[in-house]
Design a protein around this nucleic acid. Sequence first.
DNA 1: ATTGCGTTTCTGGCATACCAAATGCCATAA
DNA 2: TTATGGCATTTGGTATGCCAGAAACGCAAT
Lengths: 243, 243
Amino acid sequence: MPDPKQTKASPTMADTDIAIVRIAPETSFKNKAYEALKEAILKMDIYATPEPVMLDERALSERLGVSRTPIREAIAMLEQDGFVKTVPRRGIIVVRRTKSEIVDMIRAWAALESMAARLITTTARKKDISALRDFFKDFSDDRLPQDHVEEYSKANIAFHQALISLSESPVLVDLTNDLLLHVRGYRQLTIGRKDRTATSLPEHLGIIEALEARDTELAEKRARDHTLGLAAYVEAHGQELFT
Amino acid sequence: MPDPKQTKASPTMADTDIAIVRIAPETSFKNKAYEALKEAILKMDIYATPEPVMLDERALSERLGVSRTPIREAIAMLEQDGFVKTVPRRGIIVVRRTKSEIVDMIRAWAALESMAARLITTTARKKDISALRDFFKDFSDDRLPQDHVEEYSKANIAFHQALISLSESPVLVDLTNDLLLHVRGYRQLTIGRKDRTATSLPEHLGIIEALEARDTELAEKRARDHTLGLAAYVEAHGQELFT
DNA sequence: ATTGCGTTTCTGGCATACCAAATGCCATAA
DNA sequence: TTATGGCATTTGGTATGCCAGAAACGCAAT
């Protein structure tokens, strides 16, 4: 049974390998609710109010026009992700992370990304590595990143995700994406990151160079140190962002 | 609101500090089912049969003596963990990982563990680091690990978990535990690991020495290379274990 | 024996109803 | 006015029942 995705063809059917894909599975309400709630949680500013943000199953089921059952299943999934915590007969609480938790996550991210860099030096194509520069082609000495923080921040994230993807390691990709979702929840992190933005771009270019040179150890080190730098920055400057 | 765990005592009640502990929260059926199913999945040998292992909501609800609702919620959680995959109107499939997926996971594990080693060199107490040797105190030249593979395997896992814990990084601990659960599903990995077992112990001791010496770079490197060695081993020798 | 086709059965998805615990409101008594 | 006891409400937890799609079955025609 080599490939379960292949339709069971009768022996008479020529193995013409037409791209017959399984028709749209029509994602379930459960998954729709999961996506919707996840997006909503990531979009909201959890730290705007001192009181914890609560969710209500019934209210959500009304808002989304489905029953409580798929909502509850979605909540259960979100709880696995660590986005919410449900307390019996109390409510569903959107989890607020502490500064040290965020720092911790960034450190784990650094670990995964440095491993990605290591793998890339041995497997990725030169062409794909060089393509990483494109993310920053809109920035130069005439158009400094620190003058377009928001835009640079987007390019920054895209760069890191593309970098990890080059490792062709689904596990690394998934784990870092999960971590990024949590870290990005702190939109305040972009605020005041102006001073850090200035050093960010050169570091990125340094990583790319090390990758192109196939210098495994150096690429790993640069990738690690770059992200650990962010962790240290948050640890030092993020105090006021967390209650 | 300093300590929510303390019972709200009226002012008149003498503060005699009777040992009144919060009564057991009685974990829900959903969580019980989750734990039970998870354990069952990890315990079973998914690769014994060529056909995929299927689960049945109704059968499970009968076996566990609860209704389908908590079962479904538990399944949703397991699906988030990547242990099962439910296909509408087909069934719930216990996910079988391919060799390359396992290798991939071990690499991620290596990344996280090397970061843990890095952190440990800067924060852990010497006493706690040295205590790591205790996991191997039952092995010596008179009692070689390769002659007690099963026992050594247990000590091995315990060592790695204790190591990660020393980093005092909840994220690293949780992520590696998750990865270990998946990797350990391959009980075949312990089989024939005899040849690798011989080199394992010295490498572990080398890691401990580097930690004690507070040599950040060396500890990181040794931790990484040790686990990457396992990945390479599985990649090279695990062929026959996967269909 | 093989092929078609309708039916039965199985399976997950979803809606709904009820339960029990935790809270809060409010009437009542000191 | 304030403390207190109880009842109504709120909220997550669980049980059930029905639905629709899909596979399995079976019967009949070729």
